[in-house]
Write a protein that binds this DNA or RNA. Structure first.
Lengths: 241, 241
DNA sequence: TCAAGTTGTCTATGATACTAGACAACTTGA
DNA sequence: TCAAGTTGTCTAGTATCATAGACAACTTGA
């Protein structure tokens, strides 16, 4: 018997994703015992060895734990991430009982392409500061983001961010007392090699890609950014009404 | 030279995803010529044959078109999908210049688990109608959704939906004049085999998973649903303030 | 016309992925 | 204690993945 789907995704990986989805949506509760390897193999119509490889991958990521002679058990949970007009990473993570951390990867200069120029109401080719940062809850990386600011309005923003480790504090440094989210666009993709490494994700894992622009109290654009969230670690909450 | 990452995702697939991302975020504009196979191979540090397999996969999905002796050219676009309090699939798709279509896959009975009971303010074990449907823009499937309604309040809802092909019309049939979105939760996952087939996606493609509950004008819950959107075909827009 | 650059097709080889079967090591409950 | 059920480990064979090189077929621009 053979399974040729030729999707470019290994069978063990498909099984692992299936089990992970089961964990994420509650079919397998935390602490609960998974079905036996044989039963999983029959469910997915694959060999037991293929299931073992899937479970090994999940175990390595800390989602399950195998106990010889007994069974394989679940251990996981996702971070709830509300998308509000006032979106602050530190507050959201703190509210979830975790310690928020930010880490600068790289800061440099850039020039505005058409898209960024439109978002920030600048001219194409205008000088920008580009900040690459990773944000964590406790010791788990949650997202990496690329942030662009006008280099004219926020000179030396890269160095300031390196000191304060927070976008809110950075803006405060330039006299911005408060700001809020003007637009948010969400889609999903597969993490590229760089992001996967920074998020401590294995290759091929999905990320939620969020393009957002923050404005001040007069609706003047301040910063625009593209964040990539590890899909397996967060769940966005959109609150209407 | 060798590349052993052993992520469970074939190299050609990683290259294909990388190029697709480039198309999605505008690095490669529609109609534009991609870099030559040799150049792509050098970029990703893989063999030219691996690049060819990636391009073949993209060509089969209609994202690119190869012309012998000349080059490989892009052809694609994503559907903008605003997430508002008043979210109507048909209006969104229609506004984008496409023809919205809905298709019933299956309707049946179900009983409320804890999560659904909470969303619909019912007791655990309460009888439900479960509707599986796929929704398309022109002839392209955009999302599949599983919708749950109280079987007491909406008796025979499955047959009604089969006739009207629209959730808005179904609710109208029971006297609900207007409704709006109460909560929306978004995450991403890999499409399972069933969803992949229904969305005409190859295995391993990411989907945006949306859990949402609609309420009437008195904030009484009407329906709760879990939709899976083909990530490569949509882009969610969250509009704040 | 022609050279340079492009995609298309062939052969070949080694590494991984998947299947298959067998048995060991261990846990649990009767 | 013991049988049934669990995970862990070994061997082997087949198919797919990825690499490598060579050359054909075709397009483009000088």
């Amino acid at each position: 018997m053979s399974m040729q789907e030729s999707s470019g995704v290994a069978l063990w990986r498909q099984v692992a994703d299936g089990i992970e989805r089961g964990i994420a949506d509650g079919r397998f509760a935390a602490g609960e015992k998974l079905p036996g390897e044989m039963e999983i193999a029959e469910t997915y119509r694959v060999n037991r060895h293929t299931v073992r490889r899937a479970l090994a991958a999940l175990a390595e990521r800390g989602l399950v734990r195998a106990e010889r002679g007994s069974g394989t058990y679940v251990e996981a949970q996702r971070l709830a991430y509300p998308l509000r007009s006032r979106t602050r990473f530190s507050e959201i993570v703190g509210a979830g009982g975790h310690e928020p951390r930010g880490q600068l990867i790289e800061a440099g200069e850039d020039i505005a392409n058409r898209e960024i120029a439109r978002e920030l109401c600048l001219k194409i080719g205008a000088p920008l500061i580009r900040i690459e940062a990773v944000r964590l809850a406790d010791r788990t990386p949650i997202c990496v983001s690329t942030t662009w600011l006008s280099a004219e309005r926020f000179p030396d923003a890269g160095n300031v961010f390196a000191n304060v480790h927070s976008m809110t504090k950075l803006l405060g440094h330039y006299g911005v007392k408060d700001y809020h989210r003007a637009s948010t666009r969400i889609t999903a993709a597969i993490a590229d090699a760089t992001d996967a490494a920074r998020l401590d994700l294995s290759l091929g894992r999905p990320v939620l890609v969020v393009d957002a622009t923050d404005v001040d109290m007069l609706d003047q654009p301040l910063v625009t950014k593209r964040s990539r969230f590890a899909a397996e670690r967060v769940e966005f909450l959109v609150e209407n009404g």
